[in-house]
């Protein structure tokens, strides 16, 4: 019976060891505020250089990130036009400055979301998480140097859209 007990104890330890360093990992939330923006047909192009290294939570765990669990772009999107319009966000991997126009090689990151005429849509954390279409590109940037470009786009023929209170929310797993 003693041998059996020892064997079962070893099995239990093996089960725990098989999970690697699972006990020393955790999930962390990093948020990046985005500036208010307005873009319209023939108007100003809205690009932003995102530098995640300016966020403490990201810097604290940058070298230990194992997985990106959750991605969201939240905020208010207002359609100032008289017809419904769609809004999208595109990512420019490896950018070193804010995009000033449509960039070849950019990847659609998020959206589209439809905003009715003369209305404001509040994009919450839950809805936004399901609108990501370029997850892997952003994951690569997050696990890379954390610097990339974003720009707003609208697939509608005419548009007049403003955004406010916008932020990028990233949930990642890091291990020690």
């Amino acid at each position: 019976m003693k041998t059996l007990s020892k064997s079962l104890a070893l099995v239990a330890l093996a089960a725990l060891a098989a999970a690697g360093c699972i006990l020393t990992s955790g999930q962390f939330v990093a948020t990046y505020d985005l500036p208010d923006a307005t873009f319209s047909t023939g108007g100003t192009f809205q690009g932003e250089l995102v530098d995640l290294t300016t966020i403490g939570e990201y810097n604290d765990h940058k070298d230990d990130i194992a997985r990106v669990e959750d991605l969201s772009l939240v905020g208010d999107i207002r359609n100032n036009g008289n017809a419904s319009a769609q809004a999208e966000v595109w990512i420019v991997p490896g950018a070193t400055s804010a995009p000033t126009g449509v960039v070849p090689g950019a990847v659609k990151l998020w959206g589209p979301i439809t905003v009715p005429a003369n209305s404001t849509v509040n994009v919450d954390w839950n809805e936004s998480a399901s609108l990501f279409v370029g997850r892997q590109t952003l994951i690569d940037e997050i696990k890379g140097d954390g610097v990339f470009g974003l720009y707003l786009a609208a697939p509608s023929v005419t548009y007049d859209i403003s955004t406010s209170n916008a932020a990028l929310i990233i949930v990642f797993s890091a291990k020690k």
């Binding site: 999970a19 699972i22 006990l23 990992s25 797993s173 291990k175």
Partner: peptide, 11 residues
Amino acid sequence: QAAAKDQVSRK
């Protein structure tokens, strides 16, 4: 309880 994947877990 530890839910493990890719060497990290949700506990």
